[in-house]
């Protein structure tokens, strides 16, 4: 059992948990993920690492309630426990292998969309601690879905917040902010974009035009998270890769997003849910992550 030391609602339907997980906290790095199960018979849910404290032996995760299993999670309070918590999984972000002095010479742009703000945070924080200041764009649907603005402000060089509906900060999609920044005369050497697949796809279409190397973090369907099942496979540069062991971060200009989004539809779109409900028959219990099961 993995004890929850802190639990709070960050925004509408987005929850943060600080969890006691000593082994994971000792070794995890920005870019990696964990798999959690709430109960003894729960689903294995992959979640990116949002923060960690090696001394305290804690790992912070952020969850958006979208289906039966994540709905179950939001009921957890400080003092409760996750039944299982395994990690860190996947490869760490590439830059942690790079020399800090080299990194300081680079102009780096982070683009975070929605829940993607959570995995962007430890990367920006890690760089900030090495003396590397980066620019960060956070995109959110509306003001009340925005998370971690204050935390990000503390570690980012320049922070640009935008909302799709213009209810807070700049107005429009993150791609518009990138275009605006370039129009203002800014340029970057590398971009890290993390968020919904559709956002990462459009960021990559734009950055390809801008000739801006872009790294994305993929979050496909997973079961074991250790390379065993292959559910998370995607095509990168014409080759099949497993997001759990080869990623989750890849060169965004090489990722086949259309295929990845189709595969994700299996569980995430209304259409996919309906097909799955039909195909899974009695075994459909909300694993699509949205519908809450047959009842």
């Amino acid at each position: 059992m993995y004890k929850i030391l802190e639990a709070k609602e960050l925004a509408n339907s987005i929850y943060l948990f600080v969890v006691e997980a000593k082994r994971c906290a000792s070794y995890c790095q920005p870019g990696q993920f964990v798999i959690v199960r709430t109960t003894e018979d729960g689903e294995r849910i992959p979640l990116t690492v949002c923060d960690y404290d090696r001394d305290a032996g804690t790992v912070t995760i952020v969850v958006q309630t979208i289906g039966a299993s994540t709905m179950e999670m939001k009921e957890l309070k400080a003092g409760d426990s996750f039944h299982d918590f395994v990690g860190p999984l996947g490869k760490a972000s590439e830059f942690i292998m790079e020399d800090a002095e080299e990194l300081k010479k680079k102009k780096i742009l982070f683009v975070a969309g929605g829940l993607g703000t959570a995995p962007v945070y430890p990367q920006v924080k890690w760089l900030h601690e090495k003396g590397v200041d980066v620019d960060v764009i956070i995109g959110s649907k509306t003001k009340d879905m925005l998370i971690m603005e204050e935390e990000m402000k503390a570690v980012a060089g320049n922070l640009y917040v935008t909302t799709d509906d213009g209810s807070y900060g700049r107005s429009g999609m993150v791609t518009k902010v990138i275009e605006d920044l370039y129009a203002e005369g800014k340029t970057y050497d590398v971009c890290v974009a993390i968020g919904p697949m559709i956002m990462m796809k459009f960021v990559c279409l734009l950055t390809k035009k801008l000739d801006l190397h872009t790294i994305v973090s993929m979050n496909p369907i997973m079961v074991d998270g250790t390379g065993m099942c292959g559910a998370c496979r995607l095509t990168v540069g014409g080759e099949v890769k497993f997001a759990c062991v080869d990623g989750p971060e890849f060169d965004g200009h090489l990722v086949n997003f259309d295929e990845a989004m189709k595969r994700q539809q299996m569980y995430k779109t209304a259409e996919g849910r309906a097909v799955l409900k039909e195909k899974e028959g009695d075994t459909h219990h909300g694993g699509c992550g949205v519908c809450g099961g047959n009842d």
């Binding site: 799955l276 195909k279 075994t283």
Partner: peptide, 15 residues
């Protein structure tokens, strides 16, 4: 492992 064949499993499997 995830017991998806059972009625009460939270993990889905395609039939």
């Amino acid at each position: 492992l995830m017991k998806a064949f059972r009625e009460d499993s939270k993990t889905p499997i395609m039939r």
